[in-house]
Amino acid sequence: MLKIDRTKVDASIKDMVLFTATKKVLADYEKEKQVLLNRETGLNERMAQLQEEHTQLLLDREIAKDNTSDYIYLSKQLTNTDEEMKIIVSLQEQFKEDFKGLKQKHLPIIRNSYSKDLSAKSEFRVNETVELVRYELLSAIADYSREVSKQREPLMPAIYEFLHDEELMETNMGFRRAFEYGSEHLVFTGGPGKSVISKNEIFSACGGNLPSGLTKPKDVK
């Protein structure tokens, strides 16, 4: 009987394209991050290789301990390997700092871009929409109820002849109840203290969630 026209809302949802600027700045961040990650991968691979070489050199030097020239040569190789490993450890620490710096660089850019993109959500004016729906709903109920009362009114002079006959009403209480005040009003069984739409239900919907227990009512003809 009363239905909200969602045509424009559904069209807006269908055509919605948000966060285009944020996607771009995130792509820029990912591109720079990948350069750092490639460097980290290279450092880790080289470190693993050097660790294997270091272990093998130790074994070879132990075997060659009776050969002075070989022992000296392998010791020099170990020293070179140790030095390169120290350099890589330093570069790995530098990588952590560079990665942190990259995040610090992009953090304000992402935040500002996201805030600007997200501002588009204000196109759906929740407060105004809720007030309009509330007004239309209550107006429709009141208009319908007034029309019932209007069409009932011409009947009442004759009905009152029966209602004012106390002797007759003593044995026809059902007739009196049928015409008691308010019987012509529409019936709402929402329960005491239950609003048609509560703030919490609206907050839930604003978060993209339907209130718990909410089900689509059967079509009212």
Score class of each variant (00 low, 15 high):
I4S: 05
D5R: 02
D10L: 12
D10K: 08
T20W: 01
K23P: 00
K23Q: 14
K24N: 09
V25L: 05
L26R: 03
A27Q: 14
Y29P: 02
E32S: 09
Q34M: 08
E40G: 05
M47Q: 09
A48L: 09
Q51F: 02
L58V: 08
D60E: 14
E62F: 11
E62G: 15
I63K: 14
D66P: 00
T68N: 14
D70V: 07
D70T: 07
D70N: 15
I72H: 01
L74V: 04
L78P: 00
L78N: 02
T81A: 06
E83H: 06
E84H: 03
I87Q: 13
S90Q: 11
F95E: 03
L102T: 06
Q104R: 10
H106F: 15
P108K: 04
I110D: 00
R111S: 04
R111T: 09
S113P: 02
L118G: 01
A120T: 07
K121G: 01
S122P: 00
V130K: 04
E131D: 11
E136L: 10
S139T: 13
A140R: 06
A140E: 05
S145T: 13
R146Q: 15
K150Q: 15
L155H: 09
L155K: 12
M156K: 05
H164A: 06
H164G: 15
M169Q: 03
E170L: 12
F179A: 03
S183K: 15
T189C: 05
K194T: 12
K194A: 11
V196R: 04
I197A: 10
S198P: 03
F203R: 06
A205C: 05
C206H: 01
N209A: 08
T215D: 12
K216M: 13
K221E: 13
